[in-house]
């Protein structure tokens, strides 16, 4: 469950699950590798160095891995002059270096930024989001992504994810040591109860860690909305972009209430069946509604010259 430096604008199950799967498989690879080394009686320090080297490799190669996992293709200023011009203008206004620009051939409206620091960053958009949004809205979305880069959110998330991966790795180790206690002929004290306690603690730490990383992500999302709006100067455009691509609009029916077949069941349908808001602890992004509300508030304040 690592997603080093991966930031996205909107939940897109296909894209996101591909990325997560890739990162997850990398995590599994680490774990298997480390366990094999451990099983072969390599010293724990050596294993730590190897795993650390892997993590660093992943950290520094994250751009390329994410490009590969998301199917994004880098585009030059010649290929996409308008996109480059917009990003250049916004990056200048934000006082940061020009990031690399990538395009994803997908109808799903989405955008993300990645990179360990502003000098090595990348902003990617799908062809779908470019078609659906107005120029102002797209600028607001790009500014939001640049804000993630400027706030160094990928690094924050990478560190959080690394800690979570580390605990999950330890968890796996303990699990195997429980199953095959004393594997490798080390003759250690095989205190089953102690191992079990440590194992349970690791599980709790792992899940709490996951929740914290997700909470952190949601918090950084509000931050990027805010500083992105300052970069673009247009919080309202981000709000309408969010409303447009969040899929909410697709839920509004084209039907007439008078055509409702269940009309005779009126007053019998329990109110308790009403679907709730369901702000979940497990989501990486805050509810779109809440983000739009805050952006509209910011728009109001900015229009009166206040920040």
């Amino acid at each position: 469950m690592t997603s080093f430096g991966m930031r996205r604008f909107k939940r897109d199950p296909g894209l996101v699950s591909r990325m997560y799967f890739t990162m997850f498989m990398l995590g599994v690879l680490y774990a298997i590798f480390a366990i094999v080394l451990w099983g072969l009686s390599f010293p724990i320090i050596f294993i730590g160095v190897i795993v650390g080297a892997f993590a660093l490799f992943q950290y520094f190669m994250s751009d390329r891995m994410i490009l590969w996992a998301s199917g994004a293709k880098l585009v030059t200023a010649q290929q996409e002059p308008e996109l480059h011009r917009s990003i250049k203008r916004l990056a200048d206004r934000a006082g940061m270096p020009m990031p690399k620009v990538a395009l994803i051939q997908s109808q799903v409206p989405n955008a993300f930024a990645t990179g360990r620091n502003p000098a090595n960053s990348l902003v990617a958009v799908t062809t779908g989001i470019r078609e659906r949004l107005t120029e102002r809205e797209l600028d607001a979305v790009l500014a939001h992504e640049l804000a993630h880069v400027r706030n160094r959110d990928m690094r924050v998330l990478a560190i959080g994810n690394f800690l979570v991966t580390l605990t999950s790795f330890l968890m796996t180790m303990f699990f195997w040591s429980m199953l095959f206690g004393g594997m490798g002929g080390r003759g250690r004290d095989n205190n089953g109860a102690a191992i079990l306690v440590v194992y349970l603690v690791t599980i709790v730490v792992y899940f709490v860690g996951q929740l914290l990383v997700l909470a952190l992500t949601r918090y950084r999302e509000f931050g990027a909305d805010h500083s992105g709006a300052e970069i673009s100067g247009d919080p309202g455009a981000l709000a309408s972009a969010l409303a447009k691509i969040s899929g909410q609009l697709a839920n509004i029916p084209d039907q007439d209430l008078r055509k409702l077949q269940t009309a005779n069941a009126f007053l019998l349908i329990p109110v308790a069946l009403r679907s709730g808001g369901g702000a979940s602890l497990f989501s990486t992004h805050p509810p779109v509604e809440e983000r739009i509300r805050r952006l509209r508030e910011l728009e109001r304040r900015m229009s009166f010259g206040m920040r």
């Binding site: 509004i252 009403r274 679907s275």
Partner: peptide
């Protein structure tokens, strides 16, 4: 529809009870 979504959040902010399931927003 975009205006409806934004009006709904403005009204909800002022305490109006808004239908959360947008699939129920049948027109007249």
């Amino acid at each position: 529809k975009p205006t409806e979504v934004s009006l709904a959040s403005r009204a909800r902010r002022q305490g109006m009870v808004i239908e959360r399931n947008m699939e129920e927003w049948m027109g007249l």
